[in-house]
Design a binder for these strands. Sequence first.
DNA 1: TTACAATTGTGTACTTAATACACTATGATA
DNA 2: TATCATAGTGTATTAAGTACACAATTGTAA
Lengths: 253, 253
Amino acid sequence: MLSKQQLIEYSEDARKNYVNHISIDCVVFGFHEGQMKVLLLKTHDEEKWYLPGGFVLKEEPIDNAAVRILQERTGLDKIFLQQFRVFGDPDRSKVHNDMYADMLPKEQNWFSGRFISIGYYALVDFFGVIPHPDQFSELCAWRDLDDMPEMQLDHENIYKSALDALRLQLNYQPIGYNLMPREFTMPELQKLYEAILGKKLDRRNFQRRILAFGILNRSEEPRKGGAHKAPYLYSFDIENYQHALTEGFKGGW
Amino acid sequence: MLSKQQLIEYSEDARKNYVNHISIDCVVFGFHEGQMKVLLLKTHDEEKWYLPGGFVLKEEPIDNAAVRILQERTGLDKIFLQQFRVFGDPDRSKVHNDMYADMLPKEQNWFSGRFISIGYYALVDFFGVIPHPDQFSELCAWRDLDDMPEMQLDHENIYKSALDALRLQLNYQPIGYNLMPREFTMPELQKLYEAILGKKLDRRNFQRRILAFGILNRSEEPRKGGAHKAPYLYSFDIENYQHALTEGFKGGW
DNA sequence: TTACAATTGTGTACTTAATACACTATGATA
DNA sequence: TATCATAGTGTATTAAGTACACAATTGTAA
């Protein structure tokens, strides 16, 4: 809490329109053709790309804001979302201030102040997404994880931070229900893990480990028509999956 | 990003003093006599306790704000701090609005708007702390983890969330350098882990595991004068400890 | 039609980590 | 000097992680 003196000063700051702007930045992960993808936007003028994001509106719960923003960019409304960090150092604000100063006439511009951004990452079904550019962008598109472009502001930092958080999640929670189609083969699921971790895994050991989690159902019929031996199809056991999500895997202690 | 229309509306909100207030709430953990402790404050009027916290000041980096607030309450300036979550749903704001409305004359009160709070947890040396009540509190004191009082607002939620985050950290990072005295015995360190986890651990297996991390040095001389067999004294190997902090323990994949 | 390449399914030996438990050693106290 | 509480060390068993090898299936090229 503030002392009374600080309280008055703080209140004065607010009156002088040094206000705080709370925004959301989302790192949207998708998976397609063995590649991990991130949904990015690009403005008309700039070469650099940026993350989907936006302000938290008046009276809007933070999580709802993230859902709304993702709904606008992807068309999806049931999305796995995870808040992972706040980015709010003052240097971010200068760039934002300048950016918005250009967009609005002076008498309508109350955008001096601090910009803090709450980082979320999302896991989505690649085929379910219909990328919608926003007002300021000419492009909204998937980019490969291992071919990421230059990004605006501190968005590269935010995206890397999201990837770290996702990799951490892999160690104590199941992943995949939100990224894979309903049915998939074991090698396909393995490719997802490899894409997230950025390294190869042993085929046989991967299978044993993932099966031991008890979150997969194997269907009777293997997939046919492929160029090689027909692989079995798996789907997630949603009940066990949910249970593993909330309880987490064994862990250390 | 917002559309131009939304941008104007948002800007208008700011002008009408619907502004965002960014505060910090800290869950300060200490360890003393085998008990995990949390530093809490209590107002004169209210029976309920609350977490040390405060607003982020103009131009102040968020992490600095947390450091400043903890400095004021504990007297410490080198503190292990970890941001773990943002709390910002609109219902929080009503209570805050009312609270501050009572404190300031109307013409100085610009406190309508949203209150979001960034949760940090801190690990500190119990003996290094000199608890300083703030302007509004009569008491700033340690409370036992297993005897926590009723708390104001959503502070119970925040504190529980911090404990979850701390327990998670235990699985992939070393803990203890910030909570233990320079030298300590193995049973003492074990009590810390048990206090955090809220369960008993096997003496012998604990020792093997913690030693395998390679972050401890055993001193030549055991501690003397105790009522029983003299235990060895350990201290953290700060170099390996730091390395383990940044790299993390093995993990799952 | 047959050999081959690519891919999938399954199995096994080896190493490391986790768990459960037992014995010995020390130092104050009765 | 016997006893109690606590500390240090060890060992057998089980589970998990790692590193491999081999057989089965299917389209394609010889």
